[in-house]
């Protein structure tokens, strides 16, 4: 904003320098500082990045760390170490592994229900999801799904569990208390991630190039969003991560091989903007002040930060090898 006023007023270059200095100061003062953790599948580590995109620390963790979610304490994350068949609790402050649950076959993605302390894990090669009591690491239930379960979600009240099976093209619905199967939702091709908001279930269909929206309670299909950024063919849209902005009516969808992230109006389901990012954009994170969107680019091994006020990318920086998931902290 300062820069724009500066240009309009036509002030001399020397003043511009002052303004630029002020602007960069302003950036660090006005925007809430944050730190983010990114899991990197291929390099087997997490990187800690700060809001200016710099990597502050790299922690070597395990083999193929993929899905990640926040843990019991705000500074903890739970990470699925797929090739080690375990889920670890990582302390982002001490940068140490505090606990681990072993024998979690093909741990892929995670969801944590804080009120009940239940950890939900998809077991990629085993056609099931598992429910653990996080505190004790005790296995509570195994939920049979289709082949290649990936995205998993639980409603805020803990009553419903949803698991997307990539190969089967189905989302299995389970009772969150009894773990009995309740329903099967038929989706388009290769359902990947599930996001819940206001009793709506958003499912990304990677090979179907769309997001489908269902009523979480009735499971009736309410709508769909089909992507088409300029210069791309429909089959190049391979959406993966979906993220809702809690402070606006916006949802963000990473479009994979289309190398874009889409902004969707959650009320009208209109796509309001496509933003060019890195190659095979898939993981998404949002800053605590909901001003910055972070996109993980799985094929170019980097991440892009997007200013959500201007809807423009601010920077793209190097991540580890195959960045997979991101969690953001104050």
């Amino acid at each position: 904003m300062i820069q724009r006023q500066n240009k309009n007023d036509g002030i001399a270059q020397t003043l511009a320098c002052v303004f630029i200095t002020l602007m960069s100061l302003g950036a660090s003062i006005n925007l809430a500082a944050f730190e983010a953790i990114i899991t990197n599948e291929r390099s087997g580590d997490v990187i800690h990045i700060s809001d200016d995109g710099s990597t502050n620390h790299v922690t070597k963790l395990c083999n193929r760390p993929r899905g990640m979610t926040k843990g019991i304490d705000n500074f903890q994350v739970l990470i699925a170490c797929s090739d080690d068949n375990k889920v670890i609790t990582y302390n982002t402050k001490t940068r140490a592994i505090e606990a681990e649950i072993t024998k979690v076959t093909g741990a892929m993605n995670l969801a944590f229900h804080k009120p009940t302390g239940q950890l939900l894990v998809t077991n990629e090669g085993s056609s099931r999801a598992s429910v653990y009591e996080l505190e004790s690491g005790r296995l509570i239930a195994e939920l049979p799904t289709g082949l290649e379960p990936d995205g998993i979600a639980i409603t805020g009240d803990g009553k419903l569990i949803f698991v997307a099976s990539e190969n089967a093209g189905l989302v299995h619905v389970f009772d969150g208390a009894t773990y009995q199967p309740l329903d099967v939702i038929r989706t388009n091709l290769r359902p990947r991630r599930i996001a819940l908001s206001n009793n709506e279930l958003w499912v990304s269909s990677e090979m179907g190039s769309r997001v489908e929206i269902f009523d979480a309670k009735t499971r009736i299909k309410k709508g769909k969003v089909i992507f088409a950024p300029k210069g791309f063919r429909p089959e190049q849209m391979t959406p993966v991560d979906i993220l809702f902005n809690p402070k606006s009516n916006e949802a963000y969808v990473a479009l994979g091989s289309a190398n874009h992230v889409a902004i969707v109006d959650t009320k009208t389901l209109e796509i309001t903007k496509y933003i060019l990012v890195g190659r095979r954009a898939w993981g998404l994170g949002l800053s605590p002040d909901a001003q910055t969107l972070i996109v993980l680019n799985g094929l170019s091994d980097d991440f892009t930060m997007i200013d959500l006020n201007t809807k423009r990318p601010i920077l793209t920086k190097r991540a580890g090898l195959i960045p997979h998931s991101i969690e953001v902290f104050k």
């Binding site: 990539e166 190969n167 093209g169 091709l189 290769r190 090979m207 179907g208 190039s209 089959e235 190049q236 391979t238 091989s257």
Partner: peptide, 12 residues
């Protein structure tokens, strides 16, 4: 009609 070919782009 389409198919997930595990090659990054669906087949038809």
């Amino acid at each position: 009609t389409q198919v997930d070919l595990y090659k990054g782009t669906r087949g038809s």
